[in-house]
């Protein structure tokens, strides 16, 4: 509570103002993007491969440097800040990756504790110590994704879905106000993908964490998003609710007509599996 309370309470929105990203090789990742993502919103970003979804998400925590414009996370400007300040922003923004990005040789707990690194005091940094309070935070995060019992298991022994939940717990352990997820379900089978998306949604609702997710599957986008942002060639080409995003809109985003496979992960499997297991 104190941890969160000490942060700026007013205006925790993420604000893109005319943001452009040009990669060192000249590729334009983002072109003049202006957006406001209000606190607590669950946003899904869709678009073709190469449209700039990852670039959009990564610019928020400075993994991709913004070349022009202004990008604020809460009260903090991300563009052009020093390393210290950037680490502060990052500590407030959790991130989840398609490939989980766990250190698979270490235990689940060690991986989740990565989320507490920003809170280590200087001497704890030196010897790599985590106080019991941090370990409890990590347990709490694992509890929210339902795999506390795996805490001391080597990460490589978990299934893909479990590994992704460890990654979510790692982000949660940061006690962030924003969670970014770059195609978090792309390496998972459809039922597991639904479960992970439900976890993300529940966390968004329970903790009020602003959540920005890149997705390839349109049905998942419609099902979970408060708001869908469509991207094409580095620009935002659609911005609206799930209901507004009908097939016509998706065709615009993707630049062609869609087939059944495009829209849904695998519709038959999900229904055969008896829909969603009880939350």
């Amino acid at each position: 509570m104190t941890e969160q309370g000490s942060r700026a309470t007013a205006g925790r929105d993420i604000v893109f103002d005319d943001v452009s990203v040009v990669y060192p090789n000249g590729t334009k990742g983002l072109i003049d993007v202006s957006l406001t993502i209000p606190e607590g919103q669950f946003v899904v970003v869709v678009g073709l491969s190469g449209a700039g979804k990852s670039t959009l998400i990564r610019s928020i925590n400075g993994l991709v440097p913004v070349t022009s414009g202004s990008l604020r996370v809460g009260e903090t400007e991300v563009v052009g800040v020093g390393r210290r300040r950037l680490r502060q922003v990052r500590s407030d923004v959790g991130m989840i990756f398609q490939g989980f990005n766990l250190v698979t040789r270490r235990s689940v707990m060690k991986n989740v504790l990565t989320g507490r690194l920003h809170a280590q005091s200087w001497w704890a940094k030196l010897i790599g110590y985590h106080p019991p309070a941090d370990i409890e935070i990590a347990f709490d995060a694992l509890e929210r994704v339902g795999i506390v019992e795996k805490a001391w298991v080597r990460a490589s022994h978990l299934s893909g879905g479990q590994q992704q939940r460890v990654a979510i717990a790692r982000a949660l352990a940061q006690q962030p106000s924003v969670v970014l997820a770059d195609e978090p379900v792309a390496s998972l089978d459809p039922p597991t993908a639904n479960q992970v998306m439900r976890d993300l949604q529940r966390i968004n609702r329970e903790l009020g964490i602003t959540t920005v997710v890149n997705l390839h599957f349109l049905d998942l986008a419609r099902r979970y998003a408060d708001r869908i942002i469509g991207m094409r060639a580095g620009r935002v080409v659609f911005d609206g609710t799930g209901e507004q995003a009908d097939d016509k809109v998706f065709e615009d985003i993707y630049g062609r007509s869609l087939t059944a496979e495009d829209v849904s992960a695998t519709p038959t499997q999900v229904s055969v599996a008896g829909g969603d297991p009880a939350p």
């Binding site: 019992e149 805490a151 903790l207």
Partner: peptide
Amino acid sequence: MSAPAPTRTARP
């Protein structure tokens, strides 16, 4: 954290 986890399970 604003909301507690639904149930507190045993810590291994």
